[in-house]
Design a protein around this nucleic acid. Structure first.
Length: 308
DNA sequence: AAGCGTGTCAACCGCAATCAA
DNA sequence: TTTGATTGCGGTTGACACGCT
């Protein structure tokens, strides 16, 4: 097709974002919502390409992002999901709403890969606990592939039989105050940005509803919630990170019998993939609140394979 | 104190999927 | 149906920080 570059290379700024650029981007998105990234550089005067703007927003500026210090739970989730899904970081990130795919990818490549290597070194086959997809036998892969196909078929049937008048449960918008909340763990390197933004919000006439004092759950960014403009959008559920993580699970388990709230890594609204994921979710989380996760986390992947 | 090696992570690049005219 | 535009994703890179010698 010969696709041209997303932006002409001349006059496009690269490298780290400055706080000023962040403010411009955030203020624009607050006003117009994420999406139509092509228009962002043109309308804001940012000397960045649309891709760069989108990336900056989704990986760094988006409200509700938790950074650094992966918990044991998150770590295990990543390990198991990676074993299940492979390097589909966006899909994995959809199960960890407060983490970005880039973050997870980095964490995997820097921490977990090495950890895995170490463990494999110690345990010979390294199957127990940390097992990468690569350690699966060919037979296991074939079985998994067959299961995927089966799941897709099942999901399709599920989707076709779904009552279309039955909409998805009302997804509460992410509490974007988290972004402006002083208690929010924000990257230390960007704390200054957060402060700048806070000050800017105070100064801005529109900022009254988004100031850190605001405690409502309203979406302070006036973009449509749950439009899938980011993998985890609309799935973030709470202000404080740990709370959010917990409520994420409890919320999910509450809805285990309904259509999936999670969006597929590539096409959020695709009903078949959604169904497929919901099956996976069921398996992942369906043991009642608090139970299934633990079981899954403690379950060696050999047993996981048995499920397929 | 200086040099070097290693780890971390934000950002970039290119490809593929999807959308829209 | 075709084709160009846009978006999303995963792999990779490069700058910076930190620890070790």
């Amino acid at each position: 097709m010969g696709r041209p570059p997303c932006c002409d290379k001349d006059g496009v700024k690269k490298g780290p974002w400055t706080p000023e650029e962040d403010i411009i981007l955030v203020s624009y998105i607050q006003e117009h919502g994420p999406g139509n990234w092509r228009a962002v550089p043109a309308n804001t005067g940012l000397l960045r390409c649309s891709k760069s703007c989108r990336l900056r927003w989704t990986n760094y500026l988006r409200p509700g992002i938790k950074r650094g210090n992966f918990t044991d739970h998150e770590e295990k989730m990543i390990i198991h999901l990676q074993a299940l899904l492979g390097n589909r970081w966006a899909a994995i990130a959809s199960y960890l709403p407060q983490r970005t795919d880039n973050d997870i990818k980095n964490y995997w490549n820097t921490h977990l890969k090495r950890k895995l290597k170490k463990l494999e070194g110690h345990e010979g086959n390294g199957h127990e606990g940390f097992s990468s997809t690569r350690s699966l036998s060919k037979g296991q892969w074939e079985r998994r592939l067959q299961t995927d196909i089966h799941m897709a078929k099942q999901a399709l049937c599920e989707a076709l039989s779904l009552d279309k008048s039955n909409p998805l449960p009302d997804i509460k918008p992410p509490n974007n105050n988290a972004y402006f909340s002083p208690s929010t763990p924000y990257a230390s390197s960007t704390e200054n940005i957060a402060k700048l933004l806070q000050n800017w919000m105070k100064d801005s006439p529109k900022s009254s509803q988004t100031s850190s004092e605001t405690t409502t759950t309203q979406n302070s960014f006036n973009y449509p919630v749950g439009t899938g403009s980011s993998p985890s959008e609309g799935t973030m559920s709470s202000a404080t990170p740990d709370q959010g993580f917990d409520s994420f699970f409890s919320f999910n388990s509450c809805n285990s019998g309904t259509s999936s709230l999670f969006q597929d890594e590539s096409k959020p609204n695709s009903s078949d993939t959604q169904g497929s994921l919901s099956l996976l979710e069921k398996w992942l989380f369906d043991d009642g609140p608090g139970q299934g996760q633990g079981d899954l986390m403690d379950m060696p992947l050999g047993e996981t394979d048995g499920l397929f």
